[in-house]
Write a protein that binds this DNA or RNA. Structure first.
Lengths: 118, 118
DNA sequence: GCAGTACTTTCGTAATTTCGAATATACTTA
DNA sequence: TAAGTATATTCGAAATTACGAAAGTACTGC
């Protein structure tokens, strides 16, 4: 049950937790994976068809997503099936999308300043 | 006006943009700053009273928030007043808070695995 | 058991982020 | 214009993250 205390230590812990989740989301490949999983449960191989990176690299990103409990896995014979743990995560991404759409101009600006496509 | 093209290059640009925003949010101090700015416009000194870090460090984080256009500034004589650029950002944080509240148990788990308070 | 497919982990290196300390800039008031 | 307050920038070191390559584990079918 959530603490009702007002100890600042707890707030700082909450902020570190939120920051941790944001950090997990702060990578284009992981966002791509999550967007892919919006439509259901998929094997690593299938995800790989959408998110074209080195298999080892994909696995590393999936590992990050697993550790933060953003996704869950299930074994099916030879393969591992991934899915989003909670649709609430989609809400976060959707809120972000609305923010981004409203500030499209800046987005362009910001993208220009960012390093070119790797 | 937003592109309607389906060129995958654009999607990847969008993902990099979103990841960029998440990266900015992926720091406890910056989350603390944004939460502070929820209630209005404040000077650096006032923010400093809430977010207790080295002034230079606060300034560095404010700089990151400025560059990403998450906050806007205004000069008032001696001081610089900061405010959130768009309340839509609050929606993102709120969506995150809902996600987090639902998974409080894991949150504890995750916090334990994270490094102790610096 | 052996070969093959599916996925994961480990390792080394390069790039990025974070922080405090020191320095710099801007505005105000005497 | 000098001194003081408010904020920002630069610098260097330590920590963290990302990636490809190589090696490892797990399941399947012959």
């Amino acid at each position: 049950m959530p603490e009702t205390s007002l100890d600042p230590k707890h707030f700082s812990a909450l902020r570190r937790f939120k920051a941790g989740i944001f950090k997990v989301l702060a990578h284009p490949t992981r966002i791509h994976i999550i967007e892919t999983l919006r439509s259901g449960e998929f094997s690593v191989g299938t995800i790989l068809e959408q998110v074209k990176v080195e298999p080892a690299n994909l696995s590393q990103h999936l590992s990050v997503l697993r550790q933060s409990h953003l996704v869950v896995t299930r074994k099916n014979g030879n393969q591992v099936l991934y899915s989003l743990r909670d649709p609430l995560l989609i809400d976060v991404l959707d809120a972000m999308r609305r923010y981004f759409q409203k500030h499209f101009e800046d987005s362009i600006e910001m993208l220009k300043q960012m390093e070119p496509v790797r």
